[in-house]
């Protein structure tokens, strides 16, 4: 297991860069026109997970962007996935 110092040396700049990308992306969307779909609200909700203390944040972000239901859907009408699920805040 590496030390915190070693991990910072290895990954800090990369993480910093990705965080700024997310911030710039949110700014870009806010400057855009028209209505946003549910993905924006879901991403914002997922971002709040980053300030939680426990070392389980990647799993929690993935869960926040996942379909939590358990029943198969009646029919597949598309093939693609969009990366978020409209939880409506629940």
């Amino acid at each position: 297991m590496m030390t915190r110092q070693q991990l910072l040396d290895l990954y800090f700049l990369e993480a910093r860069g990705k965080l700024i990308e997310v911030a710039a992306f949110l700014d870009r969307v806010e400057r855009g026109e028209g209505e946003a779909d549910f993905r924006l609200a879901e991403l914002r909700r997922a971002v709040t997970i980053l300030s939680r203390p426990e070392a389980d944040k990647a799993r929690q972000v993935l869960m926040a962007l996942s379909d939590p239901t358990t029943e198969p859907i009646p029919t597949a009408t598309t093939k693609g996935a969009c990366g978020a699920w409209p939880s409506g805040g629940n």
């Binding site: 993935l62 962007l65 996942s66 939590p68 358990t70 693609g80 996935a81 969009c82 990366g83």
Partner: peptide, 9 residues
């Protein structure tokens, strides 16, 4: 296993 939001289910 499925992509993105469909993977967990």
């Amino acid at each position: 296993t499925p992509h993105l939001e469909d993977k967990f289910k």
